[in-house]
């Protein structure tokens, strides 16, 4: 599954989208852990990030279907 990356995580990964593979049923928490394993330099930041599915935050136990249109890893925000 492809996950969009932003801000500090994007810089640490060196790319704006990352491919992760998790055995189904894949929860949001499992996907976040998979990203952390691939980007260890930002593991701490990824650990406090949230997953968004189609523009909405989901809880860690949310099961992500393969057909879900867009997955994004949202590190703590700092707009304003």
């Amino acid at each position: 599954m492809q996950i969009l990356l932003f801000a500090g995580v994007r810089d640490a990964a060196g790319c704006d989208v990352i491919e992760v593979t998790v055995d189904p049923p894949a929860t949001a928490a499992m996907l976040i852990d998979a990203v952390a394993a691939q980007v260890p330099a930002a593991a701490q930041l990824i650990g406090v990030s949230r997953l968004a599915v189609d523009g909405q935050y989901v809880a860690g136990d949310h099961v992500v279907e393969r057909g879900d249109a867009e997955l994004a890893l949202i590190p703590p925000v700092s707009g304003g």
Binding site: A7, A72, V77, G79
Partner: peptide, 8 residues
């Protein structure tokens, strides 16, 4: 906005 809107 500062808690939830995905802007950095």
């Amino acid at each position: 906005l500062k808690a939830d809107v995905p802007i950095w």
